[in-house]
Amino acid sequence: MNTNIGISKEHRQEVSDILAKLLADEFVLYTKTLKAHWNLEGHDFHTKHLFFEEHYNDIKRFTDSVAERIRKVGHYAPGTLKEFLELTHLSEKYKGDNTSHDYTATLLDDHDTIIKYIRENISKVEDDLKDAGTADFLTGIMMEHEEMAWMLRATIAK
């Protein structure tokens, strides 16, 4: 069925492309947060294990929301690991130890990358592509990542 929501077909495609990259970033971050949850070792294991569990559950919710937003603008969401790895701004590689500090620092960098990507696209989506709904959606997701980044940053502050 044709999507007729007051946004041109071309603009909806560009919005979908922006969202697809965000979806890939969210999925890679979700996977990396799961890895931290599963493989963490150290004196703070229990606390950080629960902390990472809370984070991956939040990111799972973001992932679903982004995919659904792509559908709302009339496109299909990418859904394979290959597609996600081709679209993501993040690296799936992890070079740290299994410590809370190393995992936290890596995940913080990823959240910051996502925040910057979203921030760079909010005005474009609203002003150039005429999609205030997606711009508002992106603002909400960005604020969620900002809070999570703050929590991660506060955890490793000296």
Score class of each variant (00 low, 15 high):
M1W: 10
N2S: 14
N4Y: 07
I5E: 05
S8P: 02
K9H: 08
E10D: 15
H11T: 04
R12I: 08
Q13V: 12
E14Y: 13
E14M: 15
E14N: 15
D17F: 07
D17V: 07
L19M: 08
A20F: 03
D25C: 05
D25V: 04
D25S: 02
E26F: 06
F27A: 07
T31C: 01
K32I: 06
T33K: 14
L34D: 01
K35T: 15
K35A: 14
H37P: 02
W38C: 04
H43K: 13
D44W: 05
F45C: 01
H46P: 09
K48T: 12
K48I: 10
L50D: 09
E53L: 10
E54Q: 11
E54C: 00
H55I: 15
H55D: 07
H55R: 12
H55C: 06
Y56K: 02
N57P: 02
D58H: 14
D58N: 13
D58A: 13
D64G: 03
S65I: 08
R69W: 05
R71L: 12
K72P: 01
K72F: 00
K72N: 07
V73L: 03
G74T: 10
H75T: 03
H75E: 12
H75A: 10
A77E: 10
P78R: 02
G79W: 06
G79Y: 03
T80E: 04
T80Y: 03
K82C: 06
F84K: 07
L85Y: 09
E86V: 04
E86Y: 12
H89D: 07
L90R: 00
L90D: 08
S91G: 04
E92I: 02
E92A: 11
Y94G: 08
K95M: 09
D97R: 15
N98Q: 05
T99H: 01
T99E: 01
Y103A: 07
T104S: 06
T104C: 01
A105M: 11
T106M: 13
L107K: 14
D109I: 15
D109C: 12
H111L: 01
I114F: 08
K116F: 07
K116W: 05
K116R: 13
Y117G: 07
Y117M: 11
I118W: 09
N121Y: 01
N121A: 00
N121G: 03
I122R: 05
K124F: 09
V125G: 01
E126D: 14
E126P: 00
D127C: 00
D127A: 14
D127N: 04
K130N: 12
K130G: 02
D131T: 09
A132N: 02
G133Y: 08
T134V: 11
T134P: 08
T134S: 13
F137H: 10
G140C: 06
G140Q: 10
I141Y: 08
M142E: 15
M142R: 15
H145Q: 11
W150K: 03
W150L: 06
M151R: 08
R153H: 14
R153Y: 15
A154D: 14
